[in-house]
Design a protein around this nucleic acid. Structure first.
Lengths: 269, 269
DNA sequence: GCAAAAGTGTTAACAGTACACCCATGT
DNA sequence: ACATGGGTGTACTGTTAACACTTTTGC
């Protein structure tokens, strides 16, 4: 390959990260449990293009760092959290998707335990809900004051996403760039990753009740699960700590941890 | 984001493609069937770095094209085949993985029906076999004259591949860069994609016998399957054409096509 | 006692596995 | 006839889904 690295045009390379968490609401009474909700971390853009619109956190690669390190660095800047492992989602390189020029965006997704410690006031958690009807997806994001941001998303073939060269369509919704579609795809990957409970473990403290775990699943999957079946399914991955969590107006729950030698322990999300 | 696109250093961006095919050997007698083998398309490097070593086909992105188009173009140049859909495998951005400079490589994988029409004599098909023992993987590539290229591969966590910043280790095997590890990862993805038969369909003509299909599976998975079980598994995805393939020294087989309205027809590989 | 949630058992349906058996053909 | 592969049935297993039921707490 006769390639002089300085001879040709080079694109700018950016990393965008879809960060999910599951937050617990407040209890309504001494008896009822609170309902956890799935949320995604977004920033409000302060400049053109898409000024004032919501967008995924991200930024441009600098020399001497890998794309993943760019993602880690940007995440740390905006949220103060330490870098969780990232999973690759897609590469976006359509011309015209960013009016600033020739920009390639590498998108990753991950989950982190909830923390209010977002050092950047611009970054906030938005509740996520996904509706599906007849192949069409509707992404609904809700901020803490109840304001809704609705995006209609037409899904491309997940693994063949964005490999057409047609001019990128500017979306007509509340999110910058094609970020609504990215979030939906990340959510679908997160959901299918729950075949194994490792992503859920990252959202919980060291010891947790099986109901906690189930509620994380339900928040992510957006539907109720049957307790008996759920417990059988995750049984190989957890073990009792011996601890008990009581104090609520009903039978106390046993505490569990993830099993050290769980099957496929090193599997990625 | 206050970013002037011209202000910062930018990396070169390349696409590398792992192209698999399944080739039929020749029949040994009028009675025996030929055994298909899984193969991967490699080029022999003609320049430094890694001169004379085997490498994945690929090349650098030019302006006005997406990364996938780069992959398509390079594939066309080297094989003469038209672009099959690509699936994203990983992004490689470790410093030091390419001595020529700051180079990010986006790796894709795909399968194409076998054709000898490789316009570039440098590009050849190599038989692939993967051995596993105690978490270690051994990739064995064999060229048409029987010469073997063996690579020991220590697999990283698939989805978290290459997100460490440590200097990339130069592999001590027959393949350039970290391409042995990439091929192994692509093969594992191809294998898991066979839960659905769409990749296998791409390797066969419009109509095929169920034994053809099963042999494609066996070549990719590297193990024998039980006929009765295999047929039940793929039954929802195929339908009889009415045709018959005879002429061999045994009962003739029915011909099948992929069912038009197969379940998950639009699913990616 | 009672509401709420923790936790267990039972059943039917389904998918995956292994194996045994018969069928149709060209030589 | 016979070797070879095409093709089908069946029994065993484990997983999943649905539902019914019991247990334990705070008020």
């Amino acid at each position: 390959m006769d390639y002089d690295i300085t001879q040709y045009d080079r694109p700018s390379v950016a990393a965008d990260i879809v960060v999910f968490t599951v937050r617990r609401g407040e209890s309504e009474s001494y008896r009822h449990l609170s309902k956890p909700v799935l949320s995604v971390l977004l920033v409000r853009r302060t400049e053109e293009p898409f000024e004032n619109m919501l967008a995924l956190p991200g930024g441009f690669c600098c020399r001497e760092e890998t794309i993943e390190e760019t993602a880690f660095r940007k995440l740390k800047e905006k949220t103060g959290v330490d870098s969780p492992p990232l999973s690759l989602l897609c590469n976006l390189s359509k011309l015209g998707r960013d009016p600033r020029g020739w920009i390639i965006s590498c998108c990753y997704w991950t989950v982190i335990a909830y923390s209010k410690a977002t050092t950047d006031k611009n970054a906030q958690w938005y509740e996520v809900s996904l509706k599906e009807s007849g192949g069409k997806h509707t992404l609904i994001l809700t901020d803490d004051s109840g304001r809704e941001y609705v995006s209609e998303v037409r899904l491309h073939n997940p693994n063949e996403l964005y490999n057409q060269s047609a001019e990128a369509e500017i979306p007509r919704n509340s999110l910058a760039f094609d970020h609504a579609e990215i979030i939906v795809n990340a959510l679908l990957k997160l959901r299918s990753s729950l075949e194994k409970p490792y992503a859920a473990f990252r959202l919980l403290p060291e010891s947790f009740t099986l109901t906690d775990l189930q509620q994380v699943y339900e928040a992510i999957l957006g539907r109720k699960l049957l307790m008996a079946n759920f417990r059988r399914k995750i049984a190989p991955y957890v073990e009792e700590t011996g601890g008990i969590e009581g104090g609520a107006g009903h039978r106390p729950s046993k505490l569990f941890t993830r099993k050290a030698a769980a099957p496929d322990h090193n599997a990625a999300l």
